[in-house]
Design a protein around this nucleic acid. Structure first.
Lengths: 108, 108
DNA sequence: TCCGTATATCGTCGATACACGATATAATCT
DNA sequence: AGATTATATCGTGTATCGACGATATACGGA
């Protein structure tokens, strides 16, 4: 330990714990190539994709379902029930707000 | 399985595996509140921060060192050796390029 | 009502992440 | 050379993740 405290005090305002947590949680949702791929597919489609997602990606249905759950929990996708299907689509506003949070957090 | 193939074919161009992988890897580096906090501290400092980071965050030195390694591997921070210290600072251009990759991937 | 279809949930297994203390490294100072 | 300092690495234990097959759910249609 030294007295070298060029980083002494942080204004509590600049260290918004909730925002940091949100950024980390959402980043975690993006932290898997399959989920990035799924999001990309959805973003490239005009409307929504049903379980075609399962076919487009080389993973079991249950695995894809879990990835979709994670994306949904993060707020990145919307699920509209259209029995027996579920219609998934990207939530552009949440994706944008992640981008904004990222940029503002690190003063880019 | 159905014949509902609204998502039949993807132009290989739009599914750049390397980019997806990079986005996922970098997102994973952001996927921990301690690392977000560390980046934020560094981004808020004009110059570079030594191991003051260890004091600013309630974690063991070895743990912080590991988090910094992850951020460095992701390209988000730079480490300049100034024995016995190491001077860490954010790599703004890499942070920006993450932001760009994110936005372009999902057509925001 | 019974059947088929699309999606979700469960249980399990191996792999990876996270935290820590202890120790190694590598340079500077006395 | 030996001590001091800052950081990195190692080893360990626990927790979380990611994949799968099997099964449950929940609806529309025959």
């Amino acid at each position: 330990m030294t007295e070298n405290t060029c980083v002494t005090e942080f204004e509590p305002a600049s260290l918004n714990e909730e925002e940091e947590e949100k950024l980390a949680v959402q980043a975690k949702a993006l932290a898997h190539p399959a989920r990035v791929r799924l999001l990309k597919i959805m973003a490239a489609q005009p409307g929504c994709v049903g379980g075609d997602l399962v076919n487009s990606i080389g993973l079991a249905q249950s695995t894809v379902s879990e990835h979709l759950r994670i994306l949904k929990d993060a707020g990145f996708i919307l699920a509209e029930v259209q029995r027996p299907r579920i219609c998934y689509s990207v939530n552009r506003s949440e994706l944008k707000s992640f981008s904004f949070l990222f940029e503002s957090s690190f003063k880019l």
